[in-house]
Design a protein around this nucleic acid. Structure first.
Lengths: 236, 236
DNA sequence: GATGATTTGTACGTATGTATA
DNA sequence: ATATACATACGTACAAATCAT
């Protein structure tokens, strides 16, 4: 069985808030470039030369330029006027802040999802949770990682608010680009599973408060403790 | 006295998460175009012809194109490949969803702001609240609108998380573009002031729970009731 | 359904601005 | 500090696609 099957029910959902551009070379280049960055072809801080990229993708510099500016707004690349672009470098503090924001947004999604999810979505959530148990039993970290992703996606979409969904997905994508392989060890995987269990239980019991609190805690537990430069936040 | 003085303490804060491009004609055109849209020069649904815009701003099509693509990601304009751009048209449902998201995000900011705001920021908040009382006494809706904006900005920045701040500001800007003149009547203004009072009190008392709940309620009270198409969210 | 008009998409040349020696 | 090298920024020309007739 394919534990990492795509969420057909989700991928066919109506287009999210900004009907993101689909056609055009610029967008294609943008997607390819984003993939390359995600795959580590271009490392954080690396210079993104328009001419070089144009040659790489066999297009002129114009679509490359547009793609770079788009990715700059996304935050994937840092764009300095008159000085070109580099792959964004996220400091530990910035990553921590993204985790914090992600925790808040996704917990909010979860809270709304408790009330708004369809029966089909609830079933899908339970199903995914069951699958993740199997993945753990087989010690399959890759499968667990995929199921975990889908698990969170179902909850995010469950809030049925395109604005929140977009924010959550955008953050999730950006974070996943810079931090990969969360579940290296069995302990983290098991802990994650236990936390999911509480969330699913609260979700099915329509327990809004618990669901919100536990989802927030769940995501904050994945938060990099290393980046807690608390001095930055202290009131002087 | 100038009730709408700029927030000098805020405008000099460190650059927010994506160090948004500062130089270049494209960005200038983007800002001007956004202003024009906000000012109603271009109405929702109106076609944004690249050539026409280029003529309007006395530049070539290239920077106009880049500006349009940037605004498309922001959501201010809808961009259809090979078919040009139009000023975004937000349905009542979409506006309602943005209000809901805004309420959640800004309430989250408020919750963090309770703990993280500096003394200077707390003082500024109290000061603004006092000013808003004066504005009401003079029946000055314009002044109240400006102070109200700054009031919320102080709280948003008070969370000290650039990611949350960017999301809140982005949403706020987009919403304000499509919905203006909130405080037409004195009742709404007074109600807003009373709600602010509770929030300030909770903020100064370090009451996290109350602050979060009241800020959320405050923003949801401004939410357009007309767009509540609850049938869209029903679990079939 | 085909054709012409209009508009977007891409390529490329030149100028301006930034970094380096 | 000045000059040189180089990448970006903008403009213009052409190609492709869309829409109206």
């Amino acid at each position: 069985m394919n534990l990492a099957e795509p969420l057909s029910s989700l991928s066919t959902l109506p287009p999210v808030v900004p009907p993101r551009s689909r056609g055009g070379l610029a967008d294609e280049v943008g997607r390819k470039l984003a993939d390359d960055i995600a795959l580590g072809v271009f490392l954080p801080g690396e210079r993104l030369d328009e001419t070089t990229l144009a040659a790489r993708f066999q297009v002129s510099r114009t679509p490359v330029r547009e793609a770079l500016k788009q990715l700059a707004i996304t935050g994937l690349v840092a764009y300095r006027p008159n000085r070109g672009s580099v792959v964004a470098e996220l400091s530990p503090l910035q990553i921590d802040q993204m985790f914090e924001a992600m925790g808040e947004i996704e917990a909010t999604c979860a809270r709304h999802a408790v009330v708004r999810m369809t029966e089909a979505e609830r079933d899908r959530l339970s199903e995914l949770h069951a699958l993740s148990r199997t993945a753990i039993q087989h010690g399959n970290a890759d499968a667990y990682d995929n199921i975990n992703r889908d698990f969170h996606l179902v909850i995010i979409h469950g809030c049925h608010n395109p604005v929140l969904i977009d924010m959550a997905l955008g953050l999730r994508h950006k974070i996943s680009t810079f931090r990969r392989t969360q579940f290296r060890n069995l302990e983290r995987m098991t802990a994650s599973f236990e936390e999911h269990s509480v969330i699913v239980e609260a979700m099915l019991a329509r327990d809004v408060v618990t669901c919100y609190r536990e989802m927030r805690a769940h995501l904050l537990s994945a938060r990099s403790a290393a980046a807690r430069v608390s001095s930055t936040w202290s009131s002087k």
